[in-house]
C-alpha cells in the first residue's frame, strides 16, 4: 500500500556554490542544491564523485573552501560537527560506527547524550533529577526500539549482530537525537534484498511518522528511484543533474556518467 506522503515544505537546507579541495584534488566544485522539509533527497553518482565529501561538508566534518551552507535560515561557513548535531542534524556512516562491545540499547542511548542535562557525577550515581532524566531518555529509546522492531536484540552486544541489524541499530542511534535532517551514508550497502526492503520501509516510516527530512547517499538505483522525492547527481565533484527520479533517469549526462560515453 503506498501511502500519501506529507507535502514538502520550505527549504530546510541550502547548499550554495560549495567547493572543496584536498591539496590539489578538487573533491567538489561549485555544488548547489536545496533540500526541502519532509523530503527524501538522494545524492547519487559513480565512485569518487564526491558524495560522501558532500555529506561531510553538511555535517561540519569538512570545511569547504568556497560557498555557503544555509540550514534553517542560518548561513554558515564553518561549524563543528557537535554544533551541527545540536542543531538537529544526525547521520549514519558508510562503514558502521557503533560501539561494538555495548548493547543495542546502550548504543541508542548514546544518541541521546546531547540531550542530557544532568552532570556526569549525578548521572553516575543516578541521583535525583538525573534518575528521572535517564528514565525519560530510556523511554524515548524504547520507542525507537519498538519502531525499528529490534526488541529481541535490545541487550545483545552490537558486535554479535549480523550486518543488516547493525545498520538498523545505527539508524536507531541517529533517530535518538530527534533529528530534523537525517543524513544516511549508503544505508543499504552490503544488504540482501530482504534487508534492503526492510530498510526502505523504515526510512519511509521515519520520514512519514516523524516528518524527518532525509538526505541519503545510495548506490542501489532501484531503491533511490523508488523512495526519493528528488535526486541530485554528482560526477567528478560536479553536479550533472538534479530533479525528480524520472527526470534524472532520462537525463543524458547522467546516463553517460553511469554507462560511460561511447566514442
Amino acid at each position: 500500500m503506498s501511502a500519501k506522503r506529507r507535502p514538502p515544505g520550505e527549504v530546510l537546507l541550502k547548499v550554495e556554490n560549495i567547493s572543496l579541495s584536498f591539496g590539489g584534488v578538487r573533491a567538489l566544485s561549485d555544488i548547489s542544491f536545496e533540500i526541502r522539509r519532509h523530503e527524501v533527497f538522494s545524492i547519487i553518482g559513480p565512485n569518487g564523485a564526491g558524495k560522501s565529501s558532500m555529506l561531510n561538508c553538511i555535517n561540519g566534518f569538512y570545511h569547504p573552501q568556497g560557498g555557503s551552507i544555509t540550514y534553517k535560515g542560518r548561513t554558515r561557513r564553518q561549524m563543528r560537527p557537535h554544533e551541527v548535531a545540536s542543531q538537529g542534524i544526525a547521520r549514519t556512516f558508510q562503514n558502521i560506527a557503533l560501539f561494538r562491545g555495548m548493547s543495542t540499547l546502550d548504543n541508542i542511548m548514546t544518541g541521546r547524550s546531547l540531550k542530557m542535562r544532568a552532570g556526569l557525577l549525578a548521572q553516575a550515581i543516578r541521583f535525583g533529577p538525573a534518575l528521572k532524566e535517564e528514565l525519560e531518555h530510556r523511554e524515548f529509546c524504547e520507542r525507537i526500539i519498538d519502531f525499528l522492531e529490534i526488541e529481541s536484540i535490545r541487550k545483545v552486544p552490537v558486535g554479535r549482530l549480523p550486518y543488516g541489524l547493525q545498520k538498523r541499530v545505527e539508524l536507531g542511534r541517529a533517530l535518538a537525537a530527534e533529528p530534523e535532517l537525517l543524513l544516511l551514508d549508503e544505508p543499504m550497502a552490503g544488504m540482501n534484498l530482504e534487508e534492503k526492503r526492510d530498510m526502505c520501509r523504515f526510512i519511509l516510516d521515519v520520514n512519514d511518522e516523524f516528518g524527518t527530512t532525509i538526505c541519503m547517499i545510495e548506490h542501489d538505483m532501484g531503491v533511490v528511484m523508488d523512495i526519493s522525492d528528488r535526486v541530485v547527481v554528482l560526477d567528478y565533484g560536479r553536479k550533472i543533474g538534479e530533479g525528480q527520479p524520472e527526470e534524472v533517469r532520462s537525463n543524458q549526462a547522467v546516463i553517460d556518467a553511469y554507462l560511460g560515453v561511447q566514442h
Binding site: 500500500m1 501511502a3 500519501k4 506522503r5 519502531f147 516510516d205 512519514d208 511518522e209
Partner: peptide, 8 residues
C-alpha cells in the same frame, strides 16, 4: 495505528 495514518 502505525503506518496507517494515510489510509483513507
Amino acid at each position: 495505528p502505525r503506518g496507517l495514518r494515510h489510509y483513507e
